[in-house]
Design a protein around this nucleic acid. Structure first.
Length: 578
RNA sequence: GCGCUCGUAGCUCAGUGGAUAGAGUACUUGGCUUCGAACCAAGGUGUCGCAAGUUCGAAUCUUGCCGGGCGCACCA
């Protein structure tokens, strides 16, 4: 029995006994925190007592009798406290419920085509722990939708054009001297990403300093020139015109293209390592032309406005703010590129829903972009969901910045976890390393900033990924001791078995809630509680050799299956042995 | 200034209308000749940022205030 089923059953009883005109949405049915209050409790009597002009306990008593009579699965019904109705299921019902929970899959996204965009790193920049976080969260959300029957297309959007690229290119070309693209040969393959990251920091610093007194204003002009040249590569098919210093336009293009390729190779390697796979990258260069064309077209139709030489969308009438879509130089901003992205995704997938997962620093920005698109493609906007999470910070609320070079790279985190793992048991197991990091990110509710404490994120014990993996492997290692688990139905449960079975049955409710809210942390919280209950069961209840062996084997299998499935949704491997 | 977001134990976080607000961590102690001790058990902490309101009932909803973070025109 799931909470939803019980809730609708109680709704029906309320209608039958108290009156059909009551607002059933006011009823809450919940799992109880304490065994002495039964398995489930409902507030139905208290909610309606006042309207009916009767005492809550009196109403509760009437409802309780009807609930008791409603199903043979309900063993005991009590009225408690101010008017709670506490419901206790029979142990057969608990067992049945546990058995059906393992195969539970919500059907909310059944038959739906969903595009999930997440991670979104910019080529030419380094992947830091924030990218690791958003990738793990995005992947878990995509998994949730997939688990609920959706066909999910994972896509990735990133800026391969724009000022940050020009700044990096400026530093790269400076470093190469007059060597041009041949000079890149001397950068070893494993140093490329760091080398480019360093160039980004250098280019950004030079750009910022250029406006200050005593610095060369030519720097800024050079970067602007590179910016235009790179746009030309995509708009005109080639960088053309004046050389950049001694370097010809063709040579600038060659350097740009090779470094860009390096970036995507670096991303692929990283995603491969953390176990997420994108179906498609949408580089900004690819969607920018459509974005630009769309905004220009809609400008003529009055959906965008010209202002000081730029093309803007005026958000104020919609309670938002105004943003620039095309600069006075005629270049598309991130806004126009996002317009192009939405249109391109639609052309590619004709999605039922498009989920975009980003940090919450762009909430207001996204509202403006979507509001502008809503003026001419309302259906696309209606199908778009923007999910946001907080930013990763270091202890002391310190913000990381790739511009200042004050950050932890994604690979640094993996390395730290590897070391912690190695220190604990002599070798590092990538499955455990990833389990630790992913779980540490996913156990927290999406929305608030995440304070990243390296030691905790790589921890092997307590409320951690490895705790869950260990609790899974432990159960599996019992199961391999028998040839196969006999398909004995669970019937009578002892106290410890019942507690475990009850928790297993909760899986269905938790997954459903997680999918409804697209919040993976509910699953993380639940799995930890489940594993805790199992570990207690394990301490006190012998399986192999006990007279209740067959019953307990059933239960252990159900438990391991549920734990494995839940970890799977979180994108965490559940090895049979560690 | 306006908007968004957050504020729960020393720290990191669950709990978002229900009963005595919970975990992990840290600290102390006990438990492996028995299915894996990455485990289990015991030990105690809270002006739920503050104040008013709604409610039979508020950490949860409303309003105001305080505090942190982020965003607000040609960066991404």
């Amino acid at each position: 029995m799931t909470l939803n089923q019980l809730t609708s059953q109680i709704g029906k009883i309320v209608t039958d006994t108290l009156g059909s005109d009551l607002d059933l949405s006011r009823i809450a049915v919940s799992l109880t925190a304490d065994a002495k209050h039964g398995d489930y409790a409902t507030n139905a009597a208290m909610v309606y007592a006042k309207d009916l002009g009767r005492s809550p306990r009196e109403v509760a008593a009437e409802l309780a009798a009807a609930v008791k009579a409603a199903s043979p699965d309900i063993e005991q019904v009590e009225v408690a406290g101010p008017g709670f109705i506490n419901i206790t299921l029979s142990s057969q019902a608990v067992a049945k419920s546990a058995q059906s929970a393992t195969n539970f899959r919500p059907d909310k996204y059944k038959g739906k085509t969903v595009v999930a965009e997440y991670s979104d790193p910019n080529p030419f920049k380094v992947l830091h722990v924030g990218h690791l976080y958003t990738s793990v969260v995005g992947d878990a959300i995509a998994n949730l939708i997939e688990n609920a029957g959706g066909t999910v297309h994972r896509v990735n959007f990133g800026g391969d054009v724009g000022l940050h690229v020009a700044k990096t290119m400026w530093a790269i070309l400076g470093e190469l001297g007059g060597d041009g693209v041949d000079g890149l040969d001397k950068i070893p393959a494993d140093k490329r990403s760091d080398w480019m990251a360093k160039a980004y920091v250098e280019g950004t610093r030079a750009y910022d300093e250029a406006s200050e007194e005593g610095h060369d204003p030519q720097v800024k002009l050079g970067i602007m020139q590179l910016n235009r040249m790179i746009y030309e590569v995509w708009n005109k098919g080639a960088a053309t015109g004046e050389p950049y210093g001694d370097v010809s336009a063709a040579e600038v293009e060659a350097v740009y293209r090779l470094c860009r390729k390096w970036s995507y190779e670096y991303f692929d390697a990283f995603y491969g390592r953390i176990g997420t796979k994108f179906e498609k990258y949408y580089p900004e260069s690819e969607v920018a032309p459509l974005g630009l064309a769309t905004v220009r077209k809609q400008l003529k139709l009055g959906r965008y406005q010209e202002s000081a030489g730029a093309v803007v969308f005026e958000g104020e009438p919609h309670g938002l703010h105004t943003r620039v879509f095309i600069t006075s130089q005629g270049l598309p901003t991130y806004e126009a590129k996002d317009v192009g992205l939405v249109m391109t995704k639609w052309q590619d997938y004709h999605f039922d829903q498009s989920v975009v997962i980003t940090g919450n620093d762009i909430i207001e920005y996204m509202k403006v972009v979507l509001k502008s698109i809503e003026q001419y493609e309302p259906e696309l906007v209606a199908r778009t969901t923007h999910l946001t999470h907080g930013n990763v910070k270091l202890a002391g609320n310190q913000k990381m910045s790739s511009r200042k070079g004050n950050f932890l790279r994604a690979v640094d985190v993996l390395e730290l976890a590897g070391e912690a793992n190695k220190a604990a048991n002599g070798h590092d197991d990538e499955r455990v390393v990833l389990g630790a990091i992913k779980y540490s990110f996913l156990k927290q509710r999406i929305g608030a900033d995440l304070i990243f404490i390296p030691e905790e994120s790589v921890s092997l014990d307590g409320n951690s990924g490895p705790y869950l993996q260990y609790a899974h492997a432990r159960a599996r290692s019992i199961l391999v001791k028998v040839d196969k688990v006999p398909p004995t139905p669970l019937v009578e449960l002892d106290v410890a078995e019942r507690v475990l079975a009850m928790k297993i049955s909760e899986y269905a409710d938790v997954v459903e809630r997680s999918v409804d809210e697209l919040m993976p942390h509910h699953i993380a919280t639940y799995l930890y509680e489940l594993a805790q209950i199992f570990n207690r069961f394990y301490e006190g209840s012998r399986v192999i050799g006990d007279e209740r062996q067959e019953q307990r084997l059933q239960l252990v299998k159900l438990y391991a299956d549920v734990l494995g499935a839940g970890l799977g949704i979180l994108g965490i491997e559940a090895p049979d042995r560690l």
